[in-house]
Amino acid sequence: MKFGILVNEGPFTHQASDSAYHFTKAALEKGHEIVRVFFYHDGVNNANKLSEPQSDDRNLVGMWSALAEEHGVELIVCVAAALRRGIKDELLAAGFTISGLGQLVEAGIIGDRLITFGD
């Protein structure tokens, strides 16, 4: 199956990003296709390479980057939501790209399912 993933919360405050990450990883391991992961609202904070959690905690930003590298998953950050929150190209962790909301709509169109992870 082809899944589009929408992440609406930032890492840490809400579990939504963790759940989205685990779902995406599990889907890929089961042989499903991830059309793309789209980050909206505070979800854009998942792309902030300056994020530096304590060493005994998970590092979600790094986990997304690793997933992109291993599986070639597209990680798209909404430009309007990102700019409003100070997330710019120079702040993006590896694997993330800034683009428009059209990428979310397209994920809904070409995916068999669009799964939202939010509050």
């Binding site: 939501a81 428009g100 059209g102 709509v105």
Partner: peptide, 19 residues
């Protein structure tokens, strides 16, 4: 919260895609 405002943006873009 910002959900309503940013949500409305998505609706307008989706409509612009003739969905």
């Amino acid at each position: 919260t910002i959900y309503a405002l940013e949500g409305l943006e998505v609706v307008l873009i989706t409509a612009a895609f003739d969905q």
